[in-house]
Structures are given as C-alpha cells and as structure tokens.
C-alpha cells in the first residue's frame, strides 16, 4: 500500500476498529450530536411549544385510570393522536394538540391503530356504555375484536401509592402542588362520591361520580377515558393563529 493513501483521513477508520474504547467514545459523540440537532431545537422552537387554555394535570382518580390504561397495554391497539388529516378530523374531531398530552408520562400517542383513536373519546359514550363495553365489547358492538376486561369492574381500586405517583410526576415537571400531593388520597376518594368534596377546587371540571367513595379499577379507567380530549375548548381555539 502506498503511504500517501494511508495518510488520508478516509483511511484512518482503522483506529476506531482496533480500539474498543475509542469506538465507544466515537459512538457517544455521534449519538450526542444527533440528539443535539434533532431534540434540542424542540425545546425552544415556537412551532413546537404551543400554549393552550384548559389543560390541567390529572386528578388522582383520573391518574389511577391512566395507570390502568398503561398497565393493560391499551396503547397496543389504540392511539391517542388525531392526525391533521381530513378523514380523521371528520371522524374523531379536532386534530390533537401537543399540549393536550403534556402531562402524560409516558404519553399515549401510540401508532398501532387496530381500534379507534381515543384522543377524543371523552364524552362520546355514557359511563354505562363503557361498563358494558369493558365487561364484554361484543355486548354493545357485535363486530368488535377487542378483548373483554371483566376483572376491572370486580377489582377494587387499591392504590396506596397515588401520593407517590403525584410526587414523582411533580419531579418531572407536572405542576402538582404540595397541597395536591398531600390531599391525593382524600381527593381520590372524594371524586368517587356524589358531590366530589372540594376536588373541583384543585382539578377544574373533574367529574364526580356516586361510587360510595370506593371506586373499582373500571371506575378509575372510565374517569380517565371520559376526560380524554375534553380539556381544550375548541370554540375558543384559534387554529389560524397556530399555523406557523
């Protein structure tokens, strides 16, 4: 081999291939650079930070429902992302905004659309329908291929850690106040009574249901589902102002 070729930078890859530490450092630098270019701009670009009115953190009962949604793997078949496509907007309603899922950790956008999108399912069906449907989807939709989740209605919601859940989410930036964290257990029970106690004071528009203060897992899941996509009032939302 001619020595002139060896001195070219294109011939130096042997250094990486023969020294594992150098290779590891090289990989770290490459990934860090990629992250810097692809991820960091999302933190400051105007078009990716959209502030909208009405989005609040989940109440403890809704959060418990969210956890069950994640536990049961609902995201494996249901997305929560109405894309800005004509057919989806016609079927589900206004396309999803990033801010609507800003307090979801992890977010549930999903991409496997076996079942319908659930981003705007809140308020589309009655609580009773959800009960019938979870117990046996075929009872209300004969052609449904969704599995039944009959144990949810039979399992009392047992979440001794709801306070810790709130505290953990507060660490990653969900604006739960100290008061919200301290009263998490009480709020969870209060939202499962007819008048809801003062849960609405901390969580605007939280829907209280008469469950005798003892919600089941299904009750929590329904509280979560009925909240989905209802937080932003799209009559007040200026779509044109947000085209950018």
């Amino acid at each position: 081999m001619a020595s002139a070729q060896n001195s070219s930078i294109w011939q130096k890859h042997g250094i990486f291939e023969k020294n594992s530490i150098v290779l590891v450092i090289g990989i770290i630098v490459a990934i860090a650079w990629g992250g810097l270019v692809e991820i960091v701009p999302l933190f400051y670009l105007k078009s990716t930070i959209e502030k909208v009115q009405g989005v609040r953190p989940y109440s403890p009962l809704e959060l418990a429902g969210f956890n069950i949604y994640v536990r049961e793997g609902c995201y494996n078949c249901h997305s929560q992302m109405v894309r800005p496509l004509r057919d989806e907007v016609e079927r589900y309603g206004h396309y999803s905004l990033a801010a609507e899922s800003m307090y979801d950790h992890p977010f549930q956008w999903g991409s496997k659309r076996t079942g319908p999108d659930l981003a705007r399912v809140g308020g589309k069906y009655s609580d009773d329908w959800h009960r019938d449907h979870m117990n046996n989807p075929r009872a209300v939709v004969p052609t449904s291929i969704m599995p039944a989740y009959p144990w949810l209605a039979k399992t009392p919601l047992d979440l001794p850690n709801i306070k810790e859940d709130l505290r953990t989410l507060a660490i990653v930036g969900v604006p739960y106040t100290k008061e919200m964290i301290d009263k998490a257990d009480a709020d969870l029970k209060a939202q499962a009574t007819a008048d809801g106690g003062d849960v609405q004071k901390r969580y605007a528009n939280a829907i209280a249901r008469d469950l005798g203060g003892k919600p089941t897992e299904l009750d929590a899941l329904i509280a979560y589902l009925q909240r989905l996509g209802t937080q932003v009032d799209f009559k007040l939302y200026d779509a044109k102002a947000n085209i950018r």
Binding site: L45, K46, S47, P84, L85, R86, V89, A239, I243
Partner: peptide, 17 residues
C-alpha cells in the same frame, strides 16, 4: 428561533384547514 419553511410554505395545519 424558527425553522426553514420550504419553498411553498407548506404546513400540515394549513393543509387541513
């Protein structure tokens, strides 16, 4: 502070409108 908009200024939100 922004991003390149492309020759025709296409954007998915304007397109859906």
């Amino acid at each position: 502070t922004t991003h390149t908009n492309g020759l025709f200024g296409w954007n998915s939100r304007a397109a859906i409108v």
